[in-house]
Design a protein around this nucleic acid. Structure first.
Lengths: 338, 338
DNA sequence: CTGAAAGCGCTTACAG
DNA sequence: CTGAAAGCGCTTACAG
């Protein structure tokens, strides 16, 4: 590998001049700077990563802890991983990917060996052991997701409570009174998952605050469960709902739409449908469904920005909630006249 | 961060003794070795990554180039990424994840700065610019996938030709004569994709070699296309096929099975179905479908093993094809009596 | 405006 | 069996 000495020799300057020329950390006569840059380019020089790290400077490496438990939707997960990597590149950072197998060991390893400058945690659960670890390690870190105990942590997430209210209020404003929500698989609510319970509780609260019956139904990812969920909802309401909120993964939403279509339910004439906190493209559903997006790009960009800020200066621990927004594809309208 | 000096002081030995104790690169009196290990554990010491790299030793970091073009199936992709990370951990390696945006720039950056010891490329296309880059950089590297020009490269992949033959011969052996294959989206064959054309051509060759009409139909990922593909196949054969091979992604297979079910086609009584080179779990299809798996774990484990071997000793460039195998779920039987 | 030199934290010949 | 010291390739005070 070509070293700083090679470049210095080729440019006829000292190694410190090479370093300063390339980092721009002090002013250099234009002509020599150019000479150095030419030599560096010609030789394909890049500062040795190890040497740069050693100087106690930045390693320009971030750890991304991305466990993939069963029940995590792989495409959604991939979206977040890619969003983190791309956001990190904006700050000239590369990402070391850590997976399930060694969630805490891995984080300990890469931070205690000073391999990484900071950490981003994805898919944070309510009782996430990685949260304690982050507190213990005292490394700059940002969690995407909000654990039960946020003490001392910097967290980013979509505001799921506001998302539920947004969906409910949208339907209420149009005059809907029989509304329901199809949630994630029951298992998701039983283990310490993060946002699904928060969304569910907020959905119920929003309904109650507005004097409509809160009908929420968890739903496993198979055709039978979807049919049963739809039937249960209708039974509980005593009539077909006029507004339906999905807070489930893509296959469940696709299956439910399929069942509704076969039953002759027209969207939005008979039923208004909103897909809440979805990370996939609901415009490709049949029909396209209005969505409150789960914004991977925004969440991850904020997580990276907050991590970068922690590298410069201490950041007050806090939870940053991203305001939800609505994207219309025509699946929401006034309820049918009874 | 705690340094080797802290450990040396705590254990009352020199730093070289600490180093040798921990790396095991020379024999140390049991008692002092124990004392060192205790001190190291108590202090939570890990050798500084930068310093270790600098000594010209291993960085214990691998670059994983995982571009995600449109048309790449995200879950399949995620499976490969995780398989690489997990396989690398077996060798005490961590993985720096590089994505689309800077495929070649990124590889150049991490290898020329000596950040990584080697490279693994995923999702290699026929004319992949990363192949040229690997040749140019001269870094230990393994491609998962086979580009058109494999000169000087180490590649691993499932043997797609053999997979096609395996599927065809399975059906022929049971007496099927009207067989067809539903392939990937047409766009996949037009751009320089890697294995789909290889599979298609081998499927056709296998049919012709056995004197049956080769019916291959590319198919886009929407319900209309699936219906048309099935109809076209029947038209071309002049009758319903008795054997069907999927070489498409999960949604297309699910949609096709759905259409067939609605038409009253029973599997395997009326139609034998094989899912070829699929990375997802075909046991969850309705009905479960026999599969020739696209073995992410095996491919990635081999890719890592081959990269590791290149770190020790030069490895002769070669293409290593993984022998395909068959997993039965009961979707294949003898054809119906005409 | 530029250079010589210290030092980051390791590993590993070189001594003893 | 163990230690003192060189050196990996940078960055950055310190001189001039």
């Amino acid at each position: 590998m070509v070293s700083i000495h090679d470049v210095a020799q080729a440019a006829g300057v000292s190694i410190s001049t090479v370093s300063y020329s390339l980092t721009g950390k002090r002013s250099i006569t234009e002509s020599t700077r150019l000479r150095v840059e030419e030599a560096a380019n010609a030789l394909g020089y890049r500062a040795n990563a190890g040497a740069r790290m050693l100087k106690g400077a930045r390693t320009n490496l971030l750890a991304l802890s991305a466990p993939l438990h069963a029940g995590t939707h792989a495409p959604a997960h991939m979206t977040f991983v890619l969003a983190v990597v791309n956001a990190a590149r904006e700050y000239d950072y590369d990402v070391v990917l850590l997976t399930q197998d060694d969630a805490t060991d891995g984080l300990r390893r890469v931070s205690q060996s000073s391999l990484v400058d900071g950490i981003v945690l994805l898919d944070v659960s309510t009782t996430d052991e990685r949260a304690d670890l982050v507190r213990e390690l005292g490394v700059p870190a940002t969690l995407v997701g909000v654990p039960a105990d946020t003490d001392g942590l910097v967290c980013v997430d979509l505001d799921f409570e506001r998302s539920a209210w947004l969906a409910v209020e949208r339907l209420l404003a149009l005059g809907h009174r029989r509304i329901a929500c199809i949630g994630q698989s029951p298992a998701i609510y039983e283990r310490g998952s993060n946002f699904p319970p928060r969304f569910r509780d907020a959905f119920i609260a929003a309904c109650e605050a507005n004097g409509v019956e809160p009908v929420f139904r968890a739903c496993a990812e198979d055709a039978g469960s979807v049919v049963r969920a739809l039937d249960d909802i209708e039974a509980q309401l005593g009539a077909a709902p006029t507004g339906l909120v999905f807070q489930s993964n893509e296959p469940v939403q696709a299956m439910a739409l399929d069942v509704l279509a076969r039953r002759g339910v027209r969207i939005p004439e008979d039923l208004s449908v909103i897909s809440a906190c979805s990370s996939f493209d609901t415009a490709h559903l049949e029909p396209a469904i209005d969505v409150i997006p789960l914004p991977a790009e925004q969440s991850c960009a904020r997580a990276i920005a907050l991590t970068m800020r922690q590298l410069e200066t201490p950041v007050e621990p806090h939870v940053e909630l991203i305001e939800p927004w609505f994207v219309e594809y025509g699946s929401v309208a006034a309820p049918p006249a009874d």
